[in-house]
Design a protein around this nucleic acid. Structure first.
Lengths: 220, 220
DNA sequence: CCTACCGATCGGTAGG
DNA sequence: CCTACCGATCGGTAGG
């Protein structure tokens, strides 16, 4: 059975996956050798092939898991409330929280996707496009309901997505903000960017597309 | 003197630089071989070394030029007006415009910087940090003057930077927006995100940190 | 899990 | 500008 440092085959596989996450994020997919990966885990390179079929499998598994978790958090945010403003806030918090908590996954999904072979590349690209479309649809609905004021829901969606995407780029050297501070403040910023019209104002009978009193920076 | 397809040595050097820009952006620094570069230019790989010292030189030159142009556009925006709101708008427009017009340079600066060797890596990293600091200082000044309302100038700065950084990521397949539309709309969004207080409201004697009437989406 | 090793490809040089 | 070629390193396999 298993030796001492190794542990079970399952633990090994998780250790390899974690090493891939760290090294692919730090050095890139092409910049990471199987020998680097093996050394990180404490074995020799050929032994890795007892746990995986090819280097490419590691990239695919890491990217698949990352996309699944991001999309699950997004769906949960959308299901958390019937109110479009609250949905937007929670979706932004989930987006920011994911990017802050999973910098390695984000770096890989945003930077190494081109090294993902077909058919996985096309499949993951469609998931990403679907994510962006969901944001555009959410904002479009908010505009239709008179709660958001923005000239282009698609551009606003890309702006909000970009805010999250950049987090790991600028926070490589452990910044001064916690994950929750980031989520909270960026949630507010998303509402500011969309010029949110408070429900009370709408109910008060003002025309929705008229400039309305601004929310204070924090609504909690 | 020069043959026909080649042209002058200077034209060759520019052609090589342009091929590096395209290929480093598309396939990454490590994913681009000297043979790929040579083929793109129409010569054999060893002949490249009549025009450059090493592959690394190409990366350094591309990154240096990109940073210089971005920073020059940023300084021009800051010098365009004494008004902090106008400075912010123009800085955002310059930021967005650069990222929309130079997707290859942006992809390389944001994705391949880790392959830049010292001392260039440290030097360029400092330029980037200086750029981010300039944004934070601009927003801090706007808050101090009562023109912006935001709980953290640093986080707001990172958000605005992120909006630009993501543009080439999501616009790989030629989107439906022009460079000028992007700059214009994102300029507005930046002002919304910062809860801009119009100069007229300030002059009217309201307390600067009190929630004020919101600007309409476009101020032009 | 290891050692030994393979064919391919890499950046770059020699020499003209 | 070319052909010929070098040493190093790559992902992966053989065989136990």
């Amino acid at each position: 059975m298993g030796g001492r440092p190794p542990g079970t085959a399952d633990e090994r596989q998780r250790a390899i996956r974690d090493a891939a996450l760290t090294l692919f994020a730090e050095r890139g997919y092409l910049g990471t050798g199987m020998r680097d990966l093996a050394e990180h885990v404490g074995i020799r390179a050929p032994s890795l092939y007892n746990h995986l079929g090819a280097k490419q499998d590691l990239l695919r598994e890491v990217v698949d898991e990352a996309m699944a978790e991001l999309l699950a958090a997004h769906r949960a945010a959308l299901n958390s409330s019937p109110d479009v403003v609250e949905q937007l806030r929670r979706a932004m918090e989930a987006h920011v929280r994911y990017h802050a908590v999973h910098p390695r996954e984000v770096a890989i999904v945003n930077g190494e996707l081109r090294h993902l072979e077909e058919p996985a590349h096309t499949r993951v690209s469609q998931l990403r496009n679907g994510y962006a479309s969901s944001w555009t649809e959410l904002i479009t609905r908010g505009v239709r309901e008179g709660r958001f004021v923005t000239p282009s829901p698609a551009l606003a969606a890309l702006a909000l997505l970009g805010i999250g995407v950049a987090i790991p780029l600028w926070f490589t050297e452990e910044g001064p903000f916690s994950e929750s501070e980031l989520a909270y403040h960026y949630g507010d910023m998303a509402l500011s960017l969309l010029n949110v019209v408070p429900a009370a104002v709408r109910a008060g009978g003002q025309r929705p597309d008229e400039p309305a009193a601004m929310l204070p920076p924090s609504t909690r």
